[in-house]
Write a protein that binds this DNA or RNA. Structure first.
Lengths: 346, 346
DNA sequence: CTGTTAGCGCTTTCAA
DNA sequence: TTGAAAGCGCTAACAG
């Protein structure tokens, strides 16, 4: 079986006896070509199953009409919503989207950045957790005037736009809500001991407690050390379940819990029900993200909605803007979260 | 602010007064270069912040060391597991992965295929639903000897490998399980009226009923017409919830339901509990996929596990094999599913 | 309306 | 151990 190499522009030109440029003009619908000529070319193109070589075209044009999106964790509703919104925003602008996943590893982050840069994407949107090496590489990329937008966290660089939800005040409001309902012993489930400082939701929780003179009880803050080797995923029902188990075994158990996200909250709810306790009567539960799941738990879950699609849309928008003109002011947007009260707390 | 263009190989060569070829050899660690020369080059490379232009390199080398993965729906545990497994398999082989999402639209499928082909990826893995135009384009791509592997369904082409779970027998076993438990009125939730024939899980359900001489009752098969415009997503709790509501309002309601996937099952369970009925006493529920969620529902969900990671691993493996050598026999693998019995049925 | 020239940035091949 | 030439496939710019 002989595998013939794909036809090139010159192959087409040669077979119908014209200059490559003429074929190029037809293929790109640019410049003047006689109707008769165009027909001849198009026929040859069809017959020889010709497709332009994008590599060569991009090399010449110095742009690829493609942008890259780096996701830290693909199995996460947050990531997928962002990705969908980004894709829509970009395809409206005529750009393709290539997604890379890095599994929250600095090495993979860097590999993803590099492979996108190597393919000369016109810009990069980054939705990974912060880590030193990755951030340094990213700064280096931005230094070379490759448009970069970071979403889901802040990033300080005079060429990088950023968009994030206000996780701090989201956490604050969730906790405030529980306090307003009269709760004093409020637990937090899903802390990551590695970077508590980066977990804005936890910070908001702590701030709300402090504000209301409720002492912070470390035993009510559960979480686990995330080892780099194990994939954290978003499927943290387990963390929620186990965290809640531990909390329930406390001599003086909490009357309310704030979970770092809806999946964690669902796991926690399961543990509560298994223990024969009622939600919210015995224990009130608040989640975060307002995933579709939250509407269909029993009882429906009180949660904090963050504007995921909007973050993706803005990311696409800011990136396209920066691709068009690099000499613009950097924007760092922080978007409001909204507390959605359902029956898991009231 | 003057934006200097990135340094090229020749720029480096010029500044230290050698031939571009010498720099190339150092950068690629290929061929002989004196230790002294290599130092000089590496220093210049570092100083000028040089990175090879992947476009030019790939154009010359005729390979990109990159493969594309097209996902029909990113917000789906199935897709994300596949993606992770594919990525691992590829990076072990030194390949990068670019993911495109098509939102289950034929137009987007084609756009994704084309953009990958335009970037001269070395191969493509496809995990989308079947549709006529998309499949035709894909066949055209395979005709050009671009390695293609289809996962999650079968695809008939003498150059395309495929890997799929045995959804039919998975559906059959799930239904059989309910029959074995003595159920006669067994419903199916989540049929898609557009292509019932393609929904192997439904076919398995029908076959099991027929085999046991249980008449098929169309009122027990719920589903909805999926319009192309609305994103189906995987978040089908709603479909499950609404489907179950309808089933519960039937004069002679079912005693068991088989849901097309775990999310649908969760929605159905919520409806059952809301109606004040008990699972499995009044209604038994079976899901499909064994997502992490299934362990944490109340009661834990009986479901059919399909080997997602394995599908991804095999896809990567078969693709790399075909990239190395196109002249091999096509493989079409079908992988076993496994019924996981939990408390939602017994 | 069509053709020619030159070159994008790199690497293969051959020569020194 | 290094260099020169040629070309991957395409298109911008200018001629005719």
């Amino acid at each position: 079986m002989t595998r013939k190499k794909p036809a090139t522009l010159s192959d087409i030109a040669a077979t119908i006896g014209v200059a490559p440029m003429t074929v190029s003009r037809v293929v790109n619908k640019s410049g003047y070509v006689s109707e008769e000529m165009r027909e001849r070319v198009l026929q040859a193109v069809a017959e020889m199953n010709y497709r332009p070589n994008g590599l060569a075209r991009s090399l010449k044009r110095q742009r690829t009409e493609t942008v890259g999106l780096v996701l830290g964790d693909i199995s996460n509703p947050y990531s997928t919503e962002i990705a969908n919104a980004v894709r829509e925003g970009l395809s409206a602008g005529g750009f393709n989207l290539f997604i890379c996943i890095s599994e929250h590893s600095a090495k993979e982050d860097i590999a993803a950045f590099d492979s996108l840069v190597d393919h000369n994407v016109d810009g990069i949107i980054v939705a990974t957790r912060s880590n030193k090496e990755g951030d340094e590489r990213l700064a280096g990329i931005a230094d070379r005037y490759i448009p970069v937008v970071v979403v889901g966290r802040d990033f300080h660089h005079d060429q990088v736009d950023s968009i994030a939800a206000d996780n701090f005040s989201g956490g604050y409001e969730a906790t405030q809500h529980l306090i307003d309902l009269g709760h004093k012993r409020i637990a937090f489930i899903g802390a990551s001991f590695n970077d508590r400082a980066n977990l804005k939701r936890l910070q908001g929780y702590l701030a709300a407690l402090t504000k209301h003179d409720i002492p912070i009880d470390e035993r009510l803050i559960t979480g686990k050390k995330e080892t780099a080797s194990e994939s954290p995923g978003y499927s943290t029902e387990k963390i929620g379940y186990e965290g809640m188990k531990r909390l329930l075994s406390l001599p003086n158990r909490p009357t309310a819990v704030f979970a770092r996200n809806d999946f964690t909250a669902v796991g926690a709810m399961t543990a509560v029900k298994e223990a024969g306790l009622a939600i919210p009567r015995d224990i009130a539960v608040v989640g975060f993200d307002d995933t579709p799941l939250a509407l269909h738990t029993l009882p429906p879950l009180t949660t904090v909605r963050q504007p995921m699609r909007l973050q993706g849309q803005l990311a696409a928008e800011l990136l396209l803007r920066r691709i068009k003109n690099r000499e613009i002011e950097t924007e760092n947007r922080v978007l409001e979260c909204e507390l959605i009260v359902r029956q898991s707390t009231v």
